[in-house]
């Protein structure tokens, strides 16, 4: 849906904020030999990249018999090309590299004692455990009523991981006694 909006949004941000680190995903193919992974990661840190996570599906092999690995990292926008280059120079097979991985947008509304439940902790944990980025946040409370307050979260989520993100949000909400109004993804046109 909003790959376009998102791209537009992040371009605008980049223009304004110069050196703000940006998240990227790189897909690598490694030969099944000891030390390969470490060797592959060195060019990243050497060139100003900050490793966020490494995803390695155990047992799965590429058609050429290599091990596919997905690396998430953060770096200033101008460093990314250099990191990919350095990996290739080190003989690592880089299959795909890009910043496009936060490809989907998810909107959820949390309901309850938003402030008392430590909103910033909630947001922080959603971002770290769901691998999502908060795009914006709105709060609503009605003064002088006993109606529950609500918070609307717009999250950028990597493609194909919407369900995972929603389940993290659900668990966190349950832990904090909040209710979640989830989006209906399909069929809502």
């Amino acid at each position: 849906m909003s790959a376009q909006d998102l791209d537009g949004g992040s371009d605008a941000e980049t223009d304004g904020s110069g050196e703000m680190p940006k998240p990227h995903t790189i897909r690598l193919e490694l030969v099944d030999e000891p030390g390969q992974l470490l060797a592959a990661l060195k060019p990243i840190s050497d060139n100003g990249g900050n490793l966020l996570s490494i995803f390695h599906e155990r047992g799965s092999l590429t058609p050429r018999g290599h091990i596919p690995v997905e690396v998430d990292l953060e770096c200033p926008p101008d460093r990314f090309e250099r990191i990919v280059e350095a990996l290739r120079e080190a003989g690592v097979n880089v299959i795909r590299a890009g910043a496009e991985h936060f490809g989907e947008e998810v909107m959820v509304i949390l309901v309850g004692d938003i402030v008392d439940s430590d909103l910033s902790d909630t947001l922080h944990r959603i971002e770290s455990s769901a691998d999502a980025t908060l795009q914006d946040l709105s709060l609503s409370a009605r003064e002088g009523t006993d109606e529950a307050s609500s918070a609307r979260l717009r999250l950028a989520v990597r493609s194909g991981r919407v369900d995972e993100t929603l389940s993290v949000v659900r668990d966190l909400a349950a832990e904090k006694g909040l209710h979640v109004v989830e989006p209906l993804a399909e069929g809502s046109q």
Binding site: I109, V111, S138, S140, A141, R142, E147, A148, S149, S150, A151, R152, H179, V181
Partner: peptide
């Protein structure tokens, strides 16, 4: 558990 505030935000 759907308060007016949630509908406002939506």
């Amino acid at each position: 558990n759907v308060p007016g505030t949630a509908l406002d935000l939506a």
